[in-house]
């Protein structure tokens, strides 16, 4: 099909009016466009990033619950409380992240694979984005993609110091990190409006997302 490639590129050349010439190098034009983005952002993220992140997550359209604990060591307790409050069995799939595996999960049955019908999974996000209230996951051995999609309840820890203010800040950071197979920005629980526009949670992904913020932006 490389002839299709040649024909398509040829057709583009034939059709394009002499456009970009005189506008400077393509890279510089693209950079100039990026630079305009800051002025288009909703005026929201001001003050501490963690507060902005939590405020954003209050939006009912996102469909997540939040709490804050001091350190990652407090995360298992938060998970136990969540399971009890939801009336769930004390059993979770733990994302195979070394820092999560090192925590004390006593009192909870844990496993490290994710089942098709997993009831609850716990995870550690790479970071979060305050503007949108999103969690960021990069697929890896420590962060399989399906952990964020198969469980019915997803309880996720995210460290305050890994929060980016704006979508673009994350994009800039991504450029410096190894490119994972999947970048997943998770913004609340799964939802659908496919039947008469009515919002229903838990379409295919998790029906419940509980975010546990670890620490705070100021405290270090």
């Amino acid at each position: 099909m490389s002839s299709a490639r040649a024909k398509i590129l040829q057709a583009i050349r034939a059709a394009s009016p002499a456009t970009s010439s005189g506008k400077g190098p393509i890279g510089a034009q693209a950079a100039a466009l990026s630079a305009r983005a800051a002025a288009t952002r909703p005026e929201r993220v001001s003050g501490p990033v963690d507060a902005a992140f939590l405020t954003r997550l209050q939006d009912p359209g996102i469909g997540a619950t939040t709490e804050r604990v001091a350190t990652l060591q407090d995360f298992p307790d938060a998970v136990r409380r969540y399971l009890a409050a939801q009336g769930l069995a004390a059993a979770v799939a733990v994302q195979p992240h070394p820092e999560l595996l090192a925590l004390d999960w006593s009192g909870v049955e844990t496993h490290h694979h994710i089942a098709t019908d997993e009831g609850a999974a716990v995870g550690l996000a790479l970071g979060g984005i305050a503007e949108t209230g999103s969690l960021v996951f990069h697929s890896s051995a420590a962060s399989p993609t399906l952990f964020a999609f198969l469980p019915l309840h997803h309880v996720v820890a995210v460290r305050a110091e890994t929060l980016w203010p704006w979508l673009e800040d994350y994009a800039t950071a991504l450029a410096t990190l190894p490119q994972p197979r999947n970048v997943n920005l998770v913004t609340g629980a799964s939802g659908t409006t496919d039947i008469e526009g009515t919002l229903v949670r838990g379409a295919h992904g998790p029906g419940w997302l509980h975010i546990v913020l670890i620490g705070s932006t100021n405290a270090t």
């Binding site: 990026s34 994009a171 800039t172 999947n182 920005l185 913004t187 799964s190």
Partner: peptide, 28 residues
């Protein structure tokens, strides 16, 4: 051109489509 440009487009796309600020799942 880049992920940053995608972000600027996503702000427009999602609000225009459903009124949300970002889709629940935005994946690269």
């Amino acid at each position: 051109p880049s992920t940053a440009h995608a972000m600027a487009m996503l702000r427009l796309l999602v609000r225009s489509a459903t009124g949300a600020e970002l889709t629940q799942y935005t994946t690269f």
